[in-house]
Every structure is written in structure tokens, then in C-alpha cells.
């Protein structure tokens, strides 16, 4: 049996607007094995992105425990969480979140600046990552010189360049046309199948979800089954 990389127990999350409690996630129990490609589906407001943010350590649950890559998240300080994220999490956003003033190469290199890798080692990693996403010939291009699909591929290269334990993708095809979305999903599938990367993807696109090994549904903050 594969290692369990994510364990959530009785995980709940509520937001507060003034004194009003707005429950977002309710009693989530989840185990994700290493190497899994999980798609989280659900309507808007169902708590998909909130769950992803909890898994990424950029938000804290209201109650319950969450262990990701061997660390119980609630025990980590902000400083430790930052270090932990740099080591374990690769994040892909719907709107790419590339730095417009940096080239594709420099954007991908960004997470490596937090490591002790030499310039030469960083170059090797960046070239490999960009090679995997098929953008070796676009290294010196700025985001504005790339198509949406290419920008998302750069974002994926940035997510994998530090070889993270977990890739989290929040609607990675949400801003793309059909063909680009297909390419991105093929790429994520390849990362999972070929490079054994664990991927948790939030989407409400059924065609995207088809590429995942497992699909779970969230509705009104509760996870199916």
C-alpha cells in the first residue's frame, strides 16, 4: 500500500464576518496516498479552494487535524510553514501568477532562490522543468509574450522545479481555451504517471477531472463518500 501523504481528520473551516460564522468546510476526513492524482469537484462556494489552501498551509483549519507530508500543520509556525511550503508544495493557479517582469526562465527559477543550489544547479533544474513542459525554446520570453496555455505551462514548470512532494492546482484550466486546457491536463497526467507526482486539482470541468485517477466531490463543505 502506498504511503499516505495527506491525512485530514474532522477538518472544519469557518470564516467570520463580524460576529457571523460562515461555515465553509465541515468535518472533512480524507486520506491521499502518495502518487495519487485527485480531482476535487464541486459547485462554486463548495469549499474546494479553501480545502486546497489548507493543504498548502496558507490557511488554518478552525477545528480538526491535517497532516501533509508528515507534518501536522497546526504545529508549524509561520516561519516553519514558509520553509515547509518551499520544500513540499508546488502550486498552480488559475491565473498563472507569473511575475510579469521576469522571463519564463526567471519565473521558474524563483522557488530555487530559496534553496542552497548553485547557479549552475539552478540552471539545470530550470532547463529540465521547462523541457518537461515543452517550453525550452521560450525561456527568454516574458509572460506577455506567451499564450495563456504557455503561461500555465511555465507555472507548472515553476511548480515542479523544486521537485515538491505535492502539486496543488486550483482550476488550472479555468482560464484556457479547450485545446490549451487539454494540453495542460495531458501535462499534469504525465507528471503523475511518468514522474509519480502527487497532484490534487480543484476543478469544475468534468473533462479535466476525467484525467485524474480519483474524483471526489465537495458540496456545501462536505466531502462525498
Amino acid at each position: 500500500m502506498a504511503d499516505i501523504i495527506v491525512t485530514a481528520r474532522n477538518l472544519s473551516k469557518s470564516y467570520y464576518r463580524e460576529s457571523l460564522e460562515i461555515p465553509v468546510l465541515h468535518n472533512i476526513n480524507l486520506d491521499i496516498p502518495n502518487g495519487q492524482f485527485l480531482a476535487l469537484m464541486g459547485p462554486s462556494g463548495s469549499g474546494k479552494t479553501t480545502l486546497l489552501n489548507l493543504l498548502a498551509g496558507i490557511d488554518q483549519p478552525t477545528t480538526g487535524t491535517l497532516t501533509v507530508a508528515g507534518e501536522e500543520m497546526s504545529r508549524l509556525s509561520d516561519r516553519e510553514l514558509a520553509r515547509w511550503r518551499a520544500r513540499h508544495i508546488g502550486f498552480v493557479f488559475q491565473f498563472y501568477n507569473l511575475m510579469p517582469v521576469l522571463t519564463a526562465y526567471e519565473n521558474v527559477e524563483l522557488p530555487l532562490l530559496l534553496t542552497h543550489l548553485s547557479k549552475k544547479e539552478r540552471r539545470q533544474h530550470v532547463e529540465t522543468a521547462l523541457g518537461i513542459v515543452g517550453l525550452s525554446d521560450r525561456m527568454r520570453h516574458y509572460p506577455r509574450q506567451l499564450s495563456g496555455g504557455q503561461e500555465q505551462r511555465v507555472a507548472i514548470a515553476r511548480a515542479i522545479v523544486s521537485d515538491p512532494t505535492l502539486i496543488l492546482a486550483d482550476e488550472p484550466t479555468g482560464d484556457l481555451d479547450k485545446q490549451s486546457a487539454e494540453e495542460i491536463m495531458t501535462l499534469l497526467s504525465r507528471l503523475n504517471a511518468e514522474f509519480k507526482k502527487t497532484i490534487i486539482m480543484v476543478t469544475h470541468d468534468p473533462r479535466a477531472a476525467e484525467k485524474a485517477g480519483l474524483v471526489r466531490h465537495l458540496d456545501k463543505g462536505e466531502l462525498d463518500g
Partner: peptide, 10 residues
């Protein structure tokens, strides 16, 4: 952008 840099671990 700054929030994203913090997501990356900055």
C-alpha cells in the same frame, strides 16, 4: 504578487 511569493515560501 506578494501573497504569491509568500505561497512559494518567501
Amino acid at each position: 504578487e506578494n501573497a504569491f511569493l509568500r505561497v512559494l515560501g518567501f
